[in-house]
Write a protein that binds this DNA or RNA. Structure first.
Lengths: 171, 171
DNA sequence: CCCTTTTCACCTAGGTGGTAAGAT
DNA sequence: ATCTTACCACCTAGGTGAAAAGGG
């Protein structure tokens, strides 16, 4: 399924005439597996370390579908990764990002400069830059473990409008 | 509205590693305006020349949204111009192709080689090729003038399924 | 009479959490 | 008890011709 909320960035400082690829990947925050503990009721549950992380295949990468594009194009509006999809299916062949459920992840954003020089491989190291926003960390789940997260998503995701019982503005 | 049926081409002979732009435009078949004459009933009407063509603004061009892309990419499957939209609104600001209703048009398909040389403008003449398929000529209308065309579109366009009264396979 | 515009019900295509059944 | 899967009603978003109203 789509990652929601969508990762979005506003970009400055590119060479307007040069080509860039924009991509994202996800790295584990720790090597732990989490589990849920219900204290009094479903709405007041919390996370507990449940042991060592499950083995993970090498992480996939999601290229922004507009890649490659000129710096001018990327900078002129907010770049939105709304086509990025997550799955827990290790055999997925739709190119979605594979994550282990009940594990914590850190999304990463990478900018790759498309070097027009013939021997561009030599400069690979200096031709990309990675950006990490720690506030975008999350726990992957197959079902929400917290009613307040569910309500927040129902209130903010337009595709969940069918589950709203009041105006999201009043929320 | 979308042009339907969609213009589709299968491409051979490109340089797999080179970049190409694919685009379409529409040229008048003649300088005539047509009108409808109903003989016995709506289902048996035919076209009549109604005078000289209306003045036309310079024709717009529709770039295939995947442009630019490598030859290998274009050749590996049928290229479909299903995002191309037609309008009769001279003030259109959605980038749609503007046509005069009741006029005849010839769709054209252009392939532009993206020349990596610095002085590529010099070679513009030899870097593109135009293909015309006369069987794709049509008369632009705001409403269908022939019941059999209407029925053909209802039978073949998936978005018109609501108007079908029998299985299109039996048609 | 011929043509154009606007609105509409009815589709395609696909993104939501709910729910019940199943797995561990 | 906790987590996963499959299916569903209900949305968003947008492409159809029908029909009615309007223009010349």
């Amino acid at each position: 399924r789509r990652m929601f909320p969508t990762f979005q960035v506003k970009i400055f400082g590119m060479d307007p005439m040069a080509d860039y690829m924009l991509l994202m990947d996800f790295v584990p925050v720790d090597d732990k597996r989490y589990r849920q503990v219900t204290l009094y009721a479903f709405h007041s549950s919390s996370w507990l370390v449940a042991g060592k992380a499950d083995p993970a295949t090498p992480g996939r990468v999601h290229y922004h579908p507009d890649s490659p594009a000129k710096g001018a194009q990327w900078m002129k509006q907010i770049v939105s990764f709304d086509k990025l999809k997550l799955t827990n299916n290790l055999l997925d062949d739709n190119g979605h990002i594979i994550l282990n459920s009940m594990h914590r992840y850190q999304p990463r954003f990478h900018v790759v400069y498309v070097d027009p020089r013939k021997d561009s491989e030599k400069y690979a190291e200096e031709n990309f830059k990675t950006f990490v926003f720690e506030e975008t960390r999350f726990t992957a789940v197959t079902a929400y473990q917290n009613h307040r997260i569910t309500q927040l998503k129902i209130a903010s995701n337009p595709f969940a409008k069918g589950f709203r019982d009041c105006d999201p503005e009043d929320w």
